[in-house]
Simulated scan of single mutants.
Amino acid sequence: MAAQISGKFRHSVSDTSEFPAVGDFVMVDRLDNSQGDGIIHHVLTRKSVFSRKVAGRKTDTQVVAANIDTLFICMSLNNDFNLRRLERYISVAWDSGASPVIVLTKSDLCLDLEEKVKEVESIAIGIDVLVTTSTSEEGFESLKKYISDGKTVAFIGSSGVGKSTLTNHLLGQSIIETNGIRNDDKGRHTTTRRELFIIPDLGVVIDTPGMKELGIISADFSKSFADIDELATQCRFNDCTHNQEPKCAVQNAIQEGTLSAERFESYLKLKKEAKYDGLNSKKIEKEKINEMFSGVGGIKNARKFIKEKSKKKSR
């Protein structure tokens, strides 16, 4: 049924994220379109919501999908393979309230499948990892155990990783158009809008367009980087910045090879991005100064900073 939001609703919202999104349950004034389009008066409380910062410099929130039970994070095993991007998706997925599952697609194009799966499992703490290929039905069948009557699943990921192909398999027919890979071994972008489909005798599936970027509004780093948080509890100082402090368990793990420097850098980058989101330049500068003076040696750094600043003023 076609519907539109009421004028009162439109003027009462304070943020675009409050408008109806795919997966939402709404209160509407009719059951069909026999008397015209329905009017949406209210969006019911969401039990989960996967959102991102809109592309560009704006800080608005875009709701990708709502009321999801299981979130399938899709990444193909060809040129799309990127652990750092996957960490970003995992962090946002845990924060959404849905349960993430990683789906590795196009395994037939991967020459070192076992190694790639191990790499993903090393950062996918507490998350199931599935492997699929369009050349076999075996991988697709594993998706169905996450779907049941009354449950909603959604596919997210970059363009061309096979989200629409996965959706078609769950539906049992080719409802969504799909394309092959390009000359650079990357998939072609096909889906241009978010769509919700009912799976016969199962639940509901949401297909989403590929995302060129996933700007962070909020994220759950305690789950996505649980290994680093666990190491941090073993540091000598409670306020350790994991930089140059003595007996830092995080730095020791990097030196011993049990934690990759790239993963730690990703952790710092994502935490900083989430912390600075929505702040103006002055507030960001203030946060940076606070970070500079945090941890062991903070007083010493503060004195040095003030001294250097005084020298500049006297010139």
Rank of each mutant, 00 (worst) to 15 (best):
A21I: 01
R30V: 02
K272P: 00
E177T: 05
I216V: 11
H42A: 10
E213D: 10
D239L: 12
I5K: 10
A226P: 12
F140G: 12
V120K: 15
R88G: 14
G126V: 03
H242I: 10
S281G: 02
S148P: 05
R236C: 00
D239E: 15
Y276N: 14
G150K: 10
D149N: 06
G295A: 10
S76W: 01
D15G: 08
S294C: 11
Q35Y: 02
T133I: 02
A302M: 05
Q255A: 12
V63D: 05
K106D: 05
F305V: 00
R85V: 04
E137T: 14
I90L: 15
S224E: 12
K288M: 10
S107Q: 07
K304P: 00
K47T: 14
S310A: 04
I39T: 14
I175M: 05
S266L: 04
S314W: 06
V153F: 03
K283S: 11
V54D: 09
K212G: 13
V64L: 12
E121V: 07
T135Y: 10
A219E: 04
Q251M: 14
L279S: 11
R303V: 03
S99D: 11
P209G: 04
S91G: 14
V101W: 03
V250T: 06
E18N: 10
I284W: 03
R193N: 09
F264P: 01
T45I: 13
V250K: 10
V26T: 04
S224Y: 09
S314V: 12
F50I: 03
S294N: 08
S142H: 12
I199K: 05
E141L: 12
V92R: 14
G36C: 07
T208W: 01
S218N: 08
V205N: 04
D128L: 11
N79W: 00
K282T: 11
T61K: 12
K212N: 11
V161W: 02
A154G: 05
S174D: 15
A226M: 08
E115Y: 11
S17M: 06
V63H: 13
V92Y: 15
T132E: 07
D32I: 03
H189K: 14
K282M: 06
L111P: 04
K282R: 10
S99G: 01
F293Y: 11
G7F: 00
V120H: 13
T61I: 11
L171E: 05
L270V: 02
R30Y: 07
L111E: 14
E18A: 12
D277R: 14
G150A: 09
T241N: 03
N252F: 03
Q251S: 14
D112R: 13
Q4D: 11
Q244A: 13
G23Q: 07
C240N: 08
I289C: 02
H11N: 15
S260L: 00
S260E: 04
N301D: 05
G139W: 07
G150F: 08
G157H: 02
D229P: 06
N67S: 09
S164I: 01
I284Q: 10
D95S: 09
S76D: 15
Q234C: 07
N33T: 11
E287R: 06
H41W: 09
Q4L: 06
V28M: 09
S51A: 15
I68P: 00
F305H: 12
